[in-house]
Simulated assay, not measured.
Amino acid sequence: MPAVVVVGAGIVGSSVAYHLARRGVSVTLLEQGPAPATGVTAGSFAWIRSAGGHWPGGAQDLHEYALADYQRLEAELPHVTVRRTGSLTWSGTPAQDSRPGPGQFRIGRSDIAALEPNLRHPPDQAIHTPADAGVDPTALAHALVAAAGAHGATVLHDTAVIALQVTNGRLQGVLTSTGFHAAATVVLAAGTNVPKLCEQLSADLAIAASPATLARVTAPSGLVKTIVANPDFEVREVRDGELVLVVPCVEGTAAALEQAAQDTLQHLQTTFRESDQCRLLGYRVGRRPMPSHGPLVGYVTHDQSVYVAVMHSAITLAPTVGRLIADELVTGRPAPELRRCRPRAH
């Protein structure tokens, strides 16, 4: 098939580029940052949910394939590691805890303590989801981009896309900070930047930006065994000796954000034994793309020259979406799994 340009080397764009290159497509991946996953992907908690959670619109149709697609990626890419730890969630009181869904179990204090032996005060009950997993999102994006390159893709960093080049109603390619790149098809996987890139197309793309703050913390290896989500924070071990913490969003100064990160670290130390030596490595605020009705995946032009791929829960869904997009572009056949994800073309 003709050349494809993929815009954005976050987790979604990296997955699309990899799956296209693996199918033999001529792909150019453009990333405005100096490396893959320098944007919102790097600030993702990267909880791969197997059950529960809120799955609006077409996300409900896609998430059931997530674990199988991650297993496939592990077989294809030896440097991809999925941490299958399961998750524990609890609310402030037992009455507030949701009812377990398929693949979830309500467990008591002794079972919680067995799963998380460093908890100082295990709650009376929690929801355990054994199949839940986590991944290092930055490492995953790097592995996907490297594999795309090994399959022949061209990868260009420090290349910001300025605009689509459309002449007489037909796409010619993209204008970037480093020049023009011709393409028969452009896949826009640039998160909250996608609506601006589509302005001249009059596409109906309702994508809000939701701020999320993530902190990285040094910790004794194995301090946290599962993915823990409680009223004060969410935490998991992203790699040996390093935890990631979701920090409640605060408005105001950088000092207020720093204080929120330190407060969350203190909650961690109050919750887990052997955590006194934990230290804050850093924190960042990401602007997560939040399409109002679920994932937006599909063409936004009638001539099928511009394709968008924007979603929340992108870490969970990206391997599946990358596979399905590559299949659509290569075969020309719509993927039925994406039928509820389609944007409106004008």
Rank of each mutant, 00 (worst) to 15 (best):
G286K: 14
V308F: 01
A326E: 04
G294N: 10
D303E: 05
T320R: 15
G298F: 07
T320K: 15
A326S: 06
R287T: 15
L296G: 11
L324R: 01
P289H: 14
P295F: 01
S313Y: 02
P289Y: 15
I325D: 08
H312N: 15
L296S: 07
P319Y: 14
G286Y: 14
D327F: 04
I315W: 15
I315P: 01
V285Q: 03
E328F: 03
R288A: 03
H312Y: 10
E328T: 04
A309T: 12
P289L: 06
G294H: 04
T316C: 14
Y299M: 11
H293L: 13
Y307A: 07
R288I: 12
P289K: 06
L296Q: 05
H302V: 05
I315T: 07
R288G: 01
D303M: 02
E328I: 03
V308T: 10
P319N: 15
G294C: 11
G286D: 07
E328V: 04
D327Y: 04
P295W: 01
P295I: 01
I325V: 11
E328K: 06
D327H: 10
G286E: 05
A309Q: 04
A326M: 12
S292R: 13
T301P: 03
V285T: 09
T316Y: 13
A309S: 11
A326T: 00
V285M: 02
H312W: 09
H302Y: 14
Y307H: 04
P289G: 06
L317N: 05
P289M: 06
D327Q: 15
A314V: 11
E328C: 02
M311C: 06
S313G: 03
V310S: 00
G298Q: 11
D303T: 04
S305C: 09
V285W: 10
D303N: 02
D327A: 13
S313C: 08
R323F: 04
A318F: 02
S313E: 06
R288Q: 02
V297D: 03
I315Q: 08
Q304K: 11
P291D: 07
T301R: 15
I315F: 08
V306N: 09
A314I: 13
T316G: 09
T301K: 13
P295A: 00
V310Q: 01
L317I: 08
V285A: 01
P291E: 03
L317S: 01
V300Q: 07
V306S: 14
G322C: 10
V321A: 12
I315C: 08
G298M: 12
L324D: 03
H312V: 15
R288D: 00
A318T: 00
A309W: 02
I325L: 03
A309V: 10
S305W: 00
V310E: 00
D327N: 09
L324P: 09
T320A: 15
H302I: 05
V308D: 05
Q304E: 11
R323K: 13
P295G: 00
T301F: 13
P289I: 10
